[in-house]
């Protein structure tokens, strides 16, 4: 109740006072701009091979050096942002959609449905998410799309659990009981009355979860189960550089740094959102 009556301007003001959140948002914004305008920003074609320029250290021409095939690392890292962001968004969308539906059904209908759905979620929750993603990739086969689905599946439990809890408490609210009393259909109650009120915690989890998803996606690619060569995917680039740690540190350093920066900015943003949106802080 309290939260719904809070004007969005107040939320924004609170957010702008959160330094970490603002920093995260700025970093994310620049990353998105870079990803969107990658063809304009990148100095070279990320796939253009030039064997005689292989393994050049960072210089004014190649800011992040070149890889084993003479491809410009900066351009590859820039194009990699597209893949990582897409991976984060797609897998979180999958997890969010399925998680919220499962959680709402379990929470709102209750009884047997709740028992069955939540036991399934408990089973999924029993596995560490990366193991779950690995299992999913083994079932689906390697590839970027499959990695997105796998990472998405592995994140479903957290959304489902939170949504169920929120629905259970929202169900007890007067406005829901009032809607039930006037005979509103269950679907209308769920989508019009309950859902808007439980979305805030899910946004926070989604922001934090995008970082986790990007990390998991990179991990899968690092293991050779996600993006396939010559895709400029950060995890894959990291893996390709690991045989050259002593010879050409820039091969692994820059993709690793990019992953770190992205995940860090999403974590900062997520923390900021949580502090602002968490009704308990109001």
């Amino acid at each position: 109740m309290e939260q719904r009556s809070t004007p969005s301007r107040k939320v924004l003001r609170r957010f702008f006072r959160h330094r970490g959140g603002v920093l995260g948002a700025l970093l994310m914004f620049s990353l998105i701009v870079i990803a969107v305008f990658a063809p304009q920003v990148a100095p070279f074609d990320p796939l253009a091979v030039s064997p005689f320029d292989a393994l050049l250290p960072p210089s004014t021409e190649h800011w992040m050096g070149t890889d084993t095939l003479g491809r410009d690392m900066l351009s590859r890292v820039i194009f990699g942002s597209r893949i990582s962001l897409r991976l984060g968004l797609v897998s979180v969308s999958i997890a969010l959609t399925i998680g919220v539906i499962v959680g709402s059904l379990a929470g709102y209908i209750g009884g047997r449905v709740d028992d069955v759905l939540m036991r399934i979620i408990d089973v999924l929750l029993a596995f560490p998410s990366l193991i779950l993603a690995l299992l999913a990739v083994f079932a689906l086969g390697p590839g970027l799309t499959n990695a997105m689905i796998a990472v998405g599946i592995s994140a479903i439990p957290s959304y489902a659990r939170v949504t169920r809890g929120e629905v259970l408490s929202a169900k007890e609210n007067l406005y829901v009981q009032a809607a039930e009393a006037v005979g509103a259909p269950a679907l209308v109650i769920m989508f019009r009355h309950i859902l808007p009120n439980i979305i805030a915690p899910n946004i926070v989890i989604a922001a934090l979860g995008t970082g986790t998803a990007i990390l998991a996606g990179s991990a899968l690619s690092f293991l050779g189960l996600g993006a396939q060569a010559p895709t400029p995917e950060w995890g894959l680039m990291l893996a390709q550089g690991r045989g050259f740690m002593q010879l050409a540190w820039w091969l692994s350093f820059f993709p690793g740094f990019a992953i770190m920066l992205t995940v860090m900015s999403l974590n900062l943003l997520g923390d900021g959102l949580r502090d602002v949106l968490d009704p308990r802080l109001n």
Binding site: V49, P51, T68, P230
Partner: peptide, 10 residues
Amino acid sequence: TRVIEFLQAT
């Protein structure tokens, strides 16, 4: 992998 990426570029 490098060889195939190279072949692809060729």
